[in-house]
């Protein structure tokens, strides 16, 4: 979703560090440093660190942005568990669209990545030729581009 959105806006952003907790800035995403530090602290156990990152984010982006960022973080605590606990695979076309990014970010090594089985070459080819262009068209239309 993130990469598709960035590309549709005609931008190019290096997402290398997105999943690395040591990376606290993504060039091209405004205030990513405040957001990533907040997400790291939210996922940790140090409540004082969380308070510090909350204050920093409020200073940069305001209280309402903080509340919405915590809203997103908390709902993904749920969505991740629903995905992991039901053993769902990635949807075929989306999995193929993200394949390079998953390798780059190392997410293909997660335990839950094993729930997505490799596709036979015929199905891969059909998805690449037919399904992915359809999804990209739908994304462009839904996004008003």
């Amino acid at each position: 979703m993130l990469r598709e959105g960035i590309e549709l806006e005609g931008k190019s952003v290096n997402l290398d560090g997105l999943t690395d907790p040591n990376c606290t800035n993504i060039d091209g995403i405004p205030n990513s440093e405040s957001l990533l530090k907040l997400a790291n602290a939210f996922m940790g156990k140090d409540q004082a660190a969380l308070a510090t990152t909350r204050d920093a984010l409020v200073e940069k982006m305001g209280e309402e942005a903080l509340v919405d960022a915590i809203g997103v973080a908390s709902i993904f605590q749920r969505m991740d568990r629903i995905a992991d606990a039901t053993g769902i695979p990635s949807d075929g076309p989306v999995a193929l669209m993200q394949e390079d990014l998953a390798k780059l970010l190392g997410t293909d090594q997660y335990v839950s990545a094993g729930n997505t089985k490799p596709l036979f070459w015929i199905k891969r080819t059909m998805i690449k030729l037919i399904a992915i262009p359809q999804i990209k068209k739908m994304i462009r239309e839904k996004s008003g581009h």
């Binding site: 690395d20 993504i26 997505t116």
Partner: peptide, 15 residues
């Protein structure tokens, strides 16, 4: 999506 991706990564969630 930046927040969502980092939370999911720290949960080890591929999806």
């Amino acid at each position: 999506e930046t927040v969502a991706a980092r939370v999911s990564a720290l949960n080890g969630c591929f999806y």
